[in-house]
Design a protein around this nucleic acid. Structure first.
Lengths: 188, 188
DNA sequence: GTGTACATGTAAAGTGTTACATGATTTC
DNA sequence: GAAATCATGTAACACTTTACATGTACAC
């Protein structure tokens, strides 16, 4: 999902400033399945304004840049509607953790236990954080989505707790720190 | 995780060509938590070779470009080890599906049911595909990681099956296709 | 004969992040 | 007095994808 569509969609939920969009994406209902920095949001909003998909009202403020409140136009709503008709692209899940687990197996198996330990803590923290979000954030959609996030975090946590011992046992026995199993050609 | 580190790690599991790395990332143990195209892999391998983190043996072939088999050097192994010492960055989960659900709530609630229906099918297919992978792919690490993927897919599937009815009921009653609830300022 | 698998590589275009620039106000 | 919150914006850089370029060989 490109940032422009993301902004368009967020504005369909209500008027907002660039700053507020950033907060939603960083801490709100969007936090666990999207990302965007100011450096991408502000240009996106400018472009959308230029293309007449949103309008912008500048509100003067003292000691601060004007607050710019963006609203979706009818054209913008149509455009969003149009892009919702196509099936959403597949999820993109990038996990340095999982990669680290696979790599550590070959290069530093003694690291795996710590890796999993820390991960478990992170999941617990995230479940807690999402739980708190649930208390503020209340449209059926955000509720559904945040609860989805909680389900996923719990599933990851459960998997780690249930399978770590078995996995660690396997990697311990094979302690091959400096000489990994080299198969003919990459038969992983 | 940048592509260079990804290549380095994959080569720690065994020698491979760029083509094989691409396949691993597209269909193998890495498929559900990383991504990379030829356009990023080949340049990455060149750079790694230039920096002496990997070496490259060209194998002549008939009617095809030389097959270039890359191997990790000791320096490369050290570099990988070094980067494994830092805690892995947080996962990046981008989901057009979840965004579409949130946006559809405001703009086209009648679309939600289809969206979820298709999603359920996709999860079932992915669970099946990962199950098949399990039968070929067998180091404890890949097994652990693929089973992790299956757990996550199952959790998503379960969540959708269990919560869709309740959620759809809520969005149906509020049928606000053309006039979404506009709060003062983005209180989603 | 059509499509897929094999096999590498480059260039242009797209998309995004990071760091910088600016500065008041409020909370600890 | 230090740090966070509010508020916008640009420029340089990083990274990646897409499309192109170039073929052979085998399966259906």
């Amino acid at each position: 999902m490109e940032i422009k569509t993301l902004c368009l969609g967020i504005l369909a939920l209500g008027d907002a400033t660039g700053y507020e969009i950033k907060k939603l994406v960083a801490e709100g209902s969007f936090s666990f399945f999207s990302e965007a920095s100011y450096g991408s949001i502000y240009p996106a909003l400018s472009k959308l304004t230029k293309d007449c998909l949103v309008t912008c009202k500048a509100m003067a403020q003292e000691g601060r840049p004007d607050k710019k409140i963006y609203s979706l136009t009818d054209t913008g709503r149509e455009a969003l509607n149009h892009s919702l008709k196509r099936a959403p692209g597949p999820d993109k899940n990038r996990s340095e953790f999982l990669a680290a687990v696979l790599f550590a197996e070959a290069v530093a198996p003694e690291r795996i236990s710590d890796l999993i330990e820390e991960r478990i803590l992170e999941h617990k923290q995230k479940i807690h954080a999402l739980g708190e979000l649930l208390e503020t954030d209340m449209t059926p959609g955000s509720k559904f989505v945040i609860e989805y996030g909680i389900s996923m975090q719990r599933a990851a946590l459960d998997h780690l707790v249930k399978n770590r011992e078995d996995f660690e046992k396997h990697t311990m026995s094979g302690q091959n720190n400096e000489t990994p199993a080299r198969t003919t050609t990459a038969a992983h």
